[in-house]
């Protein structure tokens, strides 16, 4: 148990960095994903094509390669980004591609009559989205968005390859310094599991809350 006593502060710090990476990237990725979803359903063809290309690139290539391109590749072009911002940037771009598809599905699932009712009273496009469409679209897309959030939390472990000291990297160094790999990685796994269990519970509560109107 001296292993635990020795490594707890580092593990907790790693957990905090993992949470930071996941939460910030999810929030930014949701924002960007919303814009991409709107571009994807726009009537303006170039915008639509740009959105399709974006999703194709970021969903069709490995996250690990994207991270290494940003952190190791960009300095070659004179762009140097510190590890944590580089990780957040990559996770944001990557999750935005997936989330945009979830949002798009949610928006398209909203009944056409909702647009008509809102348009018929002269609401602006922005207002219709914010007040009428998004609240209904998010409810439909919530299970898929929750899945994405959980996947992203686990994906943040890839930040360890660009020297970010998050939960996986802490476990790795704790394991190699003490040769207690099993303990180190099991503890890290429990850390991810706890975060994701909390996310699942939060998602279920949100689904119940948003479902109230439809019961």
């Amino acid at each position: 148990m001296d292993f635990l006593a020795l490594q707890t502060p580092a593990l907790l710090q790693g957990l905090a960095v993992t949470l930071l990476l996941g939460l910030v990237s999810f929030v930014l990725g949701s924002g960007l994903g919303t814009l991409i979803a709107l571009a994807r359903i726009s009537t303006f063809l170039p915008l639509r094509l740009a959105a399709i290309a974006y999703v194709s690139v970021f969903r069709g290539t490995p996250l690990l390669i994207q991270i290494m391109l940003v952190y190791f590749g960009l300095p070659q072009l004179g762009v140097r980004i510190p590890p944590i911002p580089a990780a957040i940037l990559t996770f944001t771009l990557y999750s935005a591609a997936y989330l945009s598809e979830n949002f798009r599905g949610g928006i398209l699932a909203v009944d056409k009559g909702q647009w008509e009712a809102a348009n018929s009273m002269g609401m602006t496009y922005q207002r219709i989205l914010a007040r009428i469409i998004f609240p209904q679209a998010i409810r439909t897309a919530l299970p898929a968005i929750g899945n994405r959030f959980i996947a992203l939390m686990k994906d943040t472990s890839l930040a360890s390859v660009i020297t970010v000291v998050e939960l996986t990297r802490v476990a790795e160094s704790a394991g190699s310094s003490s040769f207690r790999y099993i303990e180190a990685f099991v503890i890290a796994a429990i850390g991810y599991w706890l975060i994701n269990t909390a996310l699942s519970l939060g998602q279920a509560a949100l689904e119940r809350r948003m479902g109230r109107a439809y019961a």
């Binding site: 009944d111 009559g113 909702q114 008509e116 009712a117 809102a118 018929s120 009273m121 002269g122 609401m123 207002r127 007040r131 009428i132 609240p135 209904q136 409810r139 948003m210 109107a213 439809y214």
Partner: peptide, 26 residues
């Protein structure tokens, strides 16, 4: 103002919220 065959009420809003959305938003 338009009234539709299939009502097109906003399902995520209460009855009163449906009625005041236009007055507030527009």
């Amino acid at each position: 103002a338009m009234v539709f065959q299939h009502y097109n009420l906003f399902p995520h809003m209460t009855v009163l919220q449906n009625v005041v959305e236009g007055p507030l938003s527009v």
